[in-house]
């Protein structure tokens, strides 16, 4: 049986992704959370985000602490996944018709060639690109360079913060808005980890992130509960 690689070996294996590539991946995942309406893809993007943020955190804190962040991120995505599955991914339950469920409206779809996409998909794609490009341009300027932070981390911090804000304000749906909360908090954590003791900072953000995930899970459940469908 082969040996399980250590954290340091993992980091060595993923060395090609460290630095700016990780920052770009994080920015892309945040954009995907904004663009995708389907919760499954959004949660997958959030999971990838947490995995790559762990790589970024490994630059500013001991790798074993960064690994803890990844574990916490996996737990958060697990909480959201189970919650989303219990409410049928925000869709109507299979045995409830659209006429019966007065609160949840049918998603409007448009045909783009062979594909059926939500009507607001072009707007979301445009918004995601606009925010990503704006962040990329602003972080080139000296005035937007955060103290104690490397360039690639600077890009990741602003990218996550901006995307998280946009996701938060774009919807009041707890699941999607909650992912915006988590994205924003992750962005701030990247910065805060450089200025605060790594262990204390990690504990603070772990507690906050898990609390947010649990609250989001509860609010999603009540938002999509059966009494709400027929109220």
């Amino acid at each position: 049986m082969g040996n399980i690689p250590t954290i340091y070996e993992f980091l060595e294996y993923l060395d090609f992704l460290r630095g700016f590539p990780a920052a770009y991946v994080v920015l892309i995942t945040a954009s995907l959370i904004l663009i995708f309406r389907d919760w499954r893809w959004s949660i997958l993007a959030l999971l990838i985000q947490y995995l790559v943020v762990g790589l970024l955190l490994a630059d500013v804190m001991p790798p074993h602490l960064a690994f803890m962040k990844v574990i916490i991120g996996i737990f958060i995505c697990l909480i959201l996944f189970i919650t989303a599955q219990q409410v049928n991914w925000g869709r109507l339950p299979e045995d409830v018709t659209a006429e019966e469920a007065v609160l949840l409206g049918q998603e409007r779809l448009l045909r783009f060639g062979p594909y059926m996409l939500p009507t607001d998909a072009p707007f979301r794609i445009f918004l995601g690109l606009a925010v990503a490009l704006s962040v990329g341009a602003l972080t080139q300027k000296a005035a937007f360079h955060l103290p104690f932070v490397d360039n690639h981390l600077n890009l990741a911090v602003f990218g996550l913060f901006a995307m998280g804000l946009v996701i938060m304000v774009l919807t009041s749906e707890p699941m999607k808005s909650g992912m915006g909360f988590l994205t924003l908090i992750t962005g701030f954590e990247l910065f805060y980890s450089t200025v605060e003791q790594p262990l204390a900072g990690m504990v603070i953000f772990a507690v906050i992130s898990l609390s947010i995930a649990l609250a989001i899970a509860y609010l999603t459940q009540v938002r999509h509960s059966f009494p709400a469908l027929f109220d």
């Binding site: 609250a215 009540v222 509960s225 109220d231």
Partner: peptide, 22 residues
């Protein structure tokens, strides 16, 4: 059950104030 608008607004304010306080 149903609308979570009010609680989500409160939640949003909490999330916004957290980084500021830190």
């Amino acid at each position: 059950a149903g609308s979570t608008l009010t609680s989500m607004r409160y939640f949003t304010l909490i999330v916004l104030v957290f980084p500021i306080l830190l």
